[in-house]
Design a protein around this nucleic acid. Sequence first.
DNA 1: CTGAAAGCGCTTACAG
DNA 2: CTGAAAGCGCTTACAG
Lengths: 344, 344
Amino acid sequence: MTVTSQQIADAAGVSRATVDRALKNRGRVKPEVAERIKQIAKEMGYHPNQAARSLALSKNPIRVGVILSSMQTPFMDVVLKGVRDAQKEVEKRGVSVEIHSIPGKDVDRTIELMDELKEKKVGGIALVPTDDERVREKIDQLAEEDGIPVVTLNADVSKSKRICFVGQNNERAGETAAGLMAECLPSNGRICVIGGRELNPAISSRTDGFINQLEKIRPDIELLKTFYVENENDNEESEKIALQMLAEYLKLDGVYVSSPAILGVCKAFQKKGVEQRIKLISHDLLKENLQYLEDGTLNFLIGQEGYMQGYEPVMVLYKLLVEEIEPENTYEYTSIIIKNKFNI
Amino acid sequence: MTVTSQQIADAAGVSRATVDRALKNRGRVKPEVAERIKQIAKEMGYHPNQAARSLALSKNPIRVGVILSSMQTPFMDVVLKGVRDAQKEVEKRGVSVEIHSIPGKDVDRTIELMDELKEKKVGGIALVPTDDERVREKIDQLAEEDGIPVVTLNADVSKSKRICFVGQNNERAGETAAGLMAECLPSNGRICVIGGRELNPAISSRTDGFINQLEKIRPDIELLKTFYVENENDNEESEKIALQMLAEYLKLDGVYVSSPAILGVCKAFQKKGVEQRIKLISHDLLKENLQYLEDGTLNFLIGQEGYMQGYEPVMVLYKLLVEEIEPENTYEYTSIIIKNKFNI
DNA sequence: CTGAAAGCGCTTACAG
DNA sequence: CTGAAAGCGCTTACAG
């Protein structure tokens, strides 16, 4: 039999209300009594029944706000799916989730939505942020003045007071790609890299992680050129760049694509019939990408668990707000998934 | 606002008790009325509040039994951790979990424990089974006569009426290893395989998957020999075998170890100083194994999510017994995780 | 076949 | 500083 708050109350010779106040440090209990109650609870191994707690809490329902940006990219669809599933999960327990999405990045709109959610008295916010000074300030303001915890997901806001970040360690993901490339290439192999815009922090972390690590573990390999794109999600552009690359460098052994526009590169490889000869490694386990893994054009894909990036932040807030369990780490890195054609 | 059973009752002009009976098909409701109630519930989008349900159910607490065999192997410790965490999770919601462990495989003891749990009126059982006719019969008997659902984990019982299996697709895991080996090896490379006992079904599935797939995708590669061991968990034996192998085959390019005794092989590689030259791929993300991945002796490790194999079955039973949600698939294969030294 | 009522373990105004 | 009591949404004997 698991122990209840009534049992604690009986043992301490007080009422359940007092036990609750003592255990939750809500004040209005004589300090000695509070101490004794805590002691007894500990000894008896008391863990509040979450079902009962949820039910009681549902009188003043807790709400959680989610703000997703860069919508309408295939990757964000996966994140959204994770958010939706978490929403179902917590709504069964009486917590409601309100989802807002912003097409592209938009600092003004982000801040506007954060203010709206604050007015609506949400208990916490999960957010795909832009790494911007004003967003940082707003997060800190919510955290400090309004006591509204913010979880960043997919991208982080450096030095902000967000309670935790859920997403990939991009540099590490690039290093993982380097480790795979290192196993694939013959000695003195030659490679190229196709990156994103030079300024995109997530993608350039991948690129840097890849280049630096490969240099370290396989100094014999020659990096011929790193290409940058204008629009990271434009597969027509990436195809053009890849075709140009293949024309220019005839003796390529491997290509690493850190940009999301991998589909264009795959098409270029197939057009030129080099998919068997040149090792190709990239990111994101999207359906169309997986087809190229299946058919052998891509040798490896690295996944970042987009689903978890949506699911976890909502659950982190649920645990914090309902079960009063703080997240264990301020960084919750999602696993770096390696896929070849057999473990899809 | 989420809709409650009272709202359904009001809309249908009946009491909550009747709504409950109708929705749960418990009978004792006039069929027409039941039909109408279901209709209304659907229209209004009714989803029972799980917190309230759990709380009400806690009057007659649901209990779940877990039977783990092959205990005292490092892998099973990970599984046990998963079970324990799931136990904490569901006990917070009023379901108790009773864990039994069997050292090694022991059909008699397994069946004895299953009977004990049945006497104790558990709501469901999660089980690491031996693939044995008598275990199969007992599972079927529990399922059919006693209405006690059984989830198999880690190993399956072929053709039994277990409600679902949580574990790895071993053949697929072997194929994944083959895919990795294929990327690593030069043309006309030479390899050996170190397997388990010839009769162990899980390990020979891995071995077969590896050998067959490698033959298919890299017919140029020569498989010199497959070694079998007496005791799969004995690292001294595997070290001896590996040393013998290295003495016999001087021009090896790769070794695949499907047996759990990978540590002995790593030691042999280091003794002979071949860890840089010969690609080595094996299974299971145990702490000691990961050290050899870190230091480069192992090129890849393939994980089978032991933690999930413990966690999921308990949750599957919780969902089934409390939330009345059937598992979606009868096979819940855990992900085949590929690790190199950078995504540990 | 149907409903009124008690109870699950917590939280939270409210009264003192 | 403390307690009695209502209420969260469900399930389940029990009475009819």
